[in-house]
Design a protein around this nucleic acid. Structure first.
Lengths: 169, 169
DNA sequence: ACGTAATCATTCGACGTCGAACTATCTCTC
DNA sequence: GAGAGATAGTTCGACGTCGAATGATTACGT
C-alpha cells in the first residue's frame, strides 16, 4: 500500500540536507522550490531540444515559428523578441537564418518605415503544424507522473508566481 | 472577500487561447505547465543574476562555490560539473577564473593522478557565507505570493517531476 | 515648423558554453 | 607485465546570446 512516490528523494533533498547541517538559519522551503525549478527546467530544455533535433530542427526555430503561427496578425521583431524572451540582437540573427531557409519573410509595415512585419511562409507554417503535435505529446510524456488534479495544481501555482514576476518586471 | 488572485491571467493563458483557437486537438494542460516552467525560470534566473551582480559577483561563481561549501569533502571537477549541470569544458573555465581570484584551489588527489580535488579557500568560504543569506532571502521574496501550504505543494510536484527526469537521464 | 528626444532594427565586440579532439593516467584482461 | 580500453581534465573551434553603439525614422514640445 501507499506507493505514492511521495517518499522519493530527489537531488535537491540531498542539497538541502547539506545546507541544513551547516546553516540551520536558512529558508529550506524557498531554496528547495527555486533549486528544483532551475534544475527541472534544465532537464526539460534538454529533452525538448532532443525532440526537435530528432526532427531536424532546433528549439529556437520552433519558438519563433510557433509564436508567429499562433498569432492572428503579423508581428514585429520587437514583439517577437518579447514573446520568446531574447534580445533584439538575437532575434535579428534568428530571423536572418529563418529567412535564409524561406520559413519567414520580412515585409515593410505601411505606417512606419522603422519597423517590420515578420510573416510565416507556407513552408514555415507547414513545419510548425507538422511538429507541434509531437512536441506537445512529448511535453505530456514528461508530465506523466502527475495526474490531472496535480497538473491543474501545478499550473495554478506557476501562474501565481508568473503573474507576480511578469508584473514588476 | 474572495481576493484570491486565482482569477489573474498570465502570458501563458493568452498563449494557450491562441493555440486553442487554431488547433483544438492540442493538450493545453501540458503546454501550459511546460511553458510556464520555462518562462518562469527565465525570470527567476534574471532576478537571481541581478541580486548577485548587485553584490559584485556572478551566479555561476556562487553555484560552484556553494556546491563546494555544502559538501563535507573535496569534490573533483567531474562531480562539480554534474552538480551544477555544465560540461566539463565549462567547468575547467570556471575553476580557472575562481582560482585566479584565489577563491578555490586545485589539489592533487593521492590515489589518482588523473583527477583533482577542488577546495575552497578561506576567501571563497567567506564569500559564500556572506552572500548565501541574502540570496535565500531573495528567493523567499520571489515566492512571497505562495503561502506555506502552497509552497509545500509546489515542492512536492516539482520533486515528482524531478525524480522521473533525473532517473531516466 | 524645427529641433530634440524616443523608437526600431541592425551591427559590433566580448563572453560563456558546448561537443569533439587530445594528453595523461588508470584498469582490466590475458 | 604488457597492451587495449576506459576515464579524468584540458584545449580547441564553432556557435548563440548579450549590452552597447549605430543609423534610420517617427513623435513631441514650444
Amino acid at each position: 500500500m501507499g506507493e505514492t512516490g511521495t517518499r522519493t528523494r530527489d537531488a535537491v533533498d540531498d542539497f538541502l540536507d547539506q545546507w541544513a547541517a551547516l546553516r540551520s538559519d536558512l529558508d529550506l522551503e524557498a531554496m528547495g522550490a527555486v533549486g528544483r525549478l532551475l534544475r527541472l527546467t534544465r532537464l526539460v530544455e534538454k529533452e525538448v531540444g532532443r525532440y526537435f533535433a530528432e526532427h531536424g530542427m532546433e528549439r529556437w526555430e520552433f519558438d519563433v515559428l510557433a509564436t508567429l503561427r499562433r498569432s492572428d496578425r503579423p508581428l514585429t521583431p520587437k514583439e517577437l523578441a518579447g514573446s520568446v524572451m531574447v534580445s533584439s540582437a538575437a532575434l535579428t540573427n534568428r530571423i536572418d537564418r529563418l529567412a535564409a531557409r524561406n520559413l519567414v519573410a520580412r515585409e515593410t509595415v505601411p505606417g512606419d518605415r522603422r519597423s517590420l512585419h515578420i510573416t510565416l511562409t507556407d513552408a514555415g507554417r507547414a513545419l510548425v503544424d507538422d511538429t507541434v503535435e509531437g512536441h506537445v505529446r512529448n511535453e505530456r510524456r514528461m508530465l506523466a507522473r502527475l495526474d490531472e488534479k496535480d497538473c491543474d495544481e501545478l499550473n495554478r501555482l506557476l501562474r501565481m508566481l508568473l503573474t507576480t514576476m511578469e508584473g514588476d518586471a
